[in-house]
């Protein structure tokens, strides 16, 4: 980056002469190096999966959940600074609740994503604040059907059929593109999601990781829930087997 050291990267409220906001780009860097998170929007629901990097063997398994629930029908996960992600999740919960207070119906995913991205964008305007160092994935089934959105540190929000963020995003995106997402069932998507997370994880470079998956759709009565234990274990096992087969090839 040529302009580094010129002082244009000290504040989110200052553009560089070529029209960039470096603080926002640095925030993206925080995401690019973090554990991978993917989302699959399929025929009858959405599946979220994250590669949770285990920083210490002293951490309890299945603690410090990375996939959170915003409303009964909205799931959330983020890649990047975990604490920033939690802050955004709480904000999203407040937005969902206030929407419910006002309209007395479950909010659409789009409504929540719009509000949340306005919030994220506001943190790119001022010198007194730091942009959020995380990219959020929001999954839901609302009155319009299944939905999957990504909100980046810039405040940009886009809807996707399949989304991947974090360190393994490139490979994951390639894998997602191979799938016929709109024809997959939720159950099939769980297996694909597990396989992709295992695939993109670099055993050589990375520390240990834990797979975490949630889903929402026809299988869950349109409620955002963790993937049931037995299905999770089966998907996890199949993913490992697929990986080993690839090695042998």
């Amino acid at each position: 980056m040529t302009s580094i050291g010129t002082g244009y990267d000290l504040s989110a409220s200052t553009y560089s002469p070529d029209g960039r906001i470096f603080q926002v780009e640095y925030a993206n860097k925080a995401v690019e190096n973090a554990g991978t998170a993917i989302g699959l929007r399929v025929k009858d629901g959405v599946v979220l999966a994250v590669e949770k990097i285990i920083h210490s063997k002293l951490l309890m398994p299945e603690s410090n959940k990375r996939i959170l629930t915003i409303d009964r029908h909205i799931g959330y996960t983020s890649s990047g600074l975990l604490a920033d992600g939690r802050q955004l999740a709480n904000r999203a919960r407040e937005e969902a609740q206030s929407s419910r207070d006002f309209y007395r119906e479950p909010p659409t995913l789009k409504a929540i994503v719009n509000r949340l991205s306005l919030f994220v964008q506001a943190y790119t305007l001022y010198s007194s604040v730091r942009p959020f160092g995380c990219t959020s994935l929001l999954a839901a089934v609302d009155k319009h059907g299944p939905g999957l959105y990504v909100i980046e540190p810039s405040g940009i929000s886009l809807g996707y059929h399949g989304a991947a963020v974090g360190k393994g995003r490139q490979l994951a995106k390639t894998e997602l593109e191979k799938l016929k997402l709109s024809e997959l069932s939720m159950r099939e998507a769980v297996f694909e999601a597990a396989r992709i997370i295992h695939l993109v994880h670099d055993d050589a470079k990375e520390k240990d990781f834990e797979l975490e998956m949630s889903w929402i759709g026809s299988e869950t009565n349109n409620v955002h829930l963790p993937v049931p234990k037995d299905l999770f274990l089966e998907a996890d096992r199949k993913a490992r087997e697929a990986l080993e087969e690839d090695m042998e090839d």
């Binding site: 959940k65 959170l68 629930t69 915003i70 409303d71 009964r72 919960r93 609740q97 419910r100 207070d101 007395r104 963790p226």
Partner: peptide, 15 residues
Amino acid sequence: QHMLDSLVTEEFTYD
């Protein structure tokens, strides 16, 4: 009813 539903939803999100 609305207060109770909100309470239950909040509790659900804590997971």
